[in-house]
Nucleic acid binder design. Sequence first.
DNA 1: CCTATAGCCTGACGGC
DNA 2: TGCCGTCAGGCTATAG
Length: 262
Amino acid sequence: MPELPDVEVFRRYFNKTSLNKEIIKAEASKSRVIKGISPQTLQAKLKGNSFKSADRHGKYLIASTSGNKFLIMHFGMTGSLSYFNNSGEPMKHIHLLLEFDNNYKLAYRDPRKFGAIYFEESKEDFLKRKNLGSDPMKGNYSLSRFKVAAEGKKETLKAFLMDQTILAGIGNIYSDEILFDAGIHPEKPVNKLSKNKLEELFSSMKKILKAAIKYGADTANFPDDYLLKHRKKNAECPKCGGKIRMKTIAGRSCYFCQNHQK
DNA sequence: CCTATAGCCTGACGGC
DNA sequence: TGCCGTCAGGCTATAG
């Protein structure tokens, strides 16, 4: 699930629920989701701390602790956060459960365990180690930087948009949505795109990501003319009435309109 | 250097 | 209702 807009929604949720409350208890699972630290050590490092703020880079949520360390979360395909205080039915697939001094809990869940939780000294070092590219929604990401990134690239636009070392945050769904909006075929090589089209792609990217955040990254909230609502083989394109096709591109199921994406 | 593929995991959904 | 196959919004290691 979680691409840039989803993680931005998680970040806002985290900021609204989980800042400036002492962590009185931390439970970490033994699963592979916890990276580079033992569950016991992670628990000990978190206990007694509070969160000061949360940042995001691409698909990573980066929470700063009162001890000047960083709890960094990636949500894989199925990760999510839940803040709650009921003791009802226990939730499944929890990998990190924090209890705050107001008796509310924050759970990181991930059934498929493709997500990741890190505890780091420095977020700059972390981003460097992961070789992450620019976050396209950070204010300083400009058209000129986008053009430089695209220059001379022979790969398909689909692969380009999803390459986390170039642009951090765009995944399968939103790369499709951006290309759909810009009316460009996902298999078109980056360096075959005209200057005008490259500029249109850039503005579609900004527009779609911004809109997705506005809609809470929740499919149900999107208007009907988004591709999101029509991700089915042989569906009708809500823009031109053409046929929606599915094809594996860059290793992922890519949906696009046969008619208006050239 | 590049692109393509398999593998990691569990759950949901559709067809029989 | 149950069983089976397929698919899923990510990323990495490996092979060619």
